[in-house]
């Protein structure tokens, strides 16, 4: 039951983009088309799940034992950057189709604060390995949900009548803030 709560909480209540305001950069940058948004979401899901597990292991087996938990941020950035590079190479070799779908987005995730965010939150919340994995997947699914919904809205905005001065990012930011308010409705869920 606890796992389900962690999952739902990560997707809806504590949505990374809309409640915690992490990973705003790709959220605004790669959300012009639903298709690319899905690609980005998939890449983030993949990396977040992996990064959650690996950083948890690094924290518990290296940093905690040596008593240098305060180096957490730097160590995690190192781990995530290395991991993304590694994953990109593996995918490129093993599955060209998946690489085609994710390819351009993978390097972008290297410095995505949502990935670092989920890794640090896992440790702060004192999750065990399984809970960490579930939280990572949930957070990433929440990100995917937000970016895909947002891309859908932006596609429709293309043809919507709105003042010309708001063209481009202003109207996107307004739409994002309204989405964020809408997601606030989930806060009483759990």
């Amino acid at each position: 039951m606890k796992l389900v709560i962690i999952l739902l909480s990560a997707i809806f209540v504590n949505n990374f983009v809309l409640s915690r305001f992490l990973g705003i950069c790709p959220f605004l940058g790669v959300s012009k088309k639903v298709e690319t948004a899905v690609g980005m979401g998939l890449a983030v899901t993949f990396v977040m799940a992996l990064a959650s597990v690996i950083t948890w292991i690094v924290q518990r087996l290296v940093l905690d034992i040596l008593g240098i938990a305060y180096m957490q941020t730097i160590a995690f950035i190192l781990v995530i950057a290395g991991l993304v590079q590694f994953v990109e190479m593996v995918i490129k070799k093993t599955s060209p189709t998946l690489y085609q779908a994710l390819g351009v987005y993978l390097p972008l995730i290297t410095t995505n604060c949502a990935v670092l965010g989920v890794a640090i939150l896992n440790i702060d919340s004192g999750y065990n390995l399984i809970e960490t994995l579930i939280n990572g997947i949930g957070g990433a699914l929440g990100f995917t949900l937000a970016i895909v919904l947002f891309a859908g809205i932006r596609e429709r905005l293309e043809t919507a009548p709105y003042p010309k001065a708001l063209d481009g990012f202003p109207i996107a930011l307004i739409a994002a803030s309204l989405m964020s308010i809408a997601f606030l409705g989930f806060s009483g869920l759990l």
Binding site: V58, V62, L63, L66, I68, M71, I74, A75, L78, V79, G82, Q85, F86, M89, V90, K92, K93, T94
Partner: peptide
């Protein structure tokens, strides 16, 4: 520790770039 981690990742990536070269 961090230096070790960095070297470890460096070696893994160097190996991977050879092994998984496309």
């Amino acid at each position: 520790t961090l230096g070790g981690l960095a070297i470890f990742f460096g070696i893994v990536l160097a190996y991977a770039s050879k092994k998984f070269a496309v």
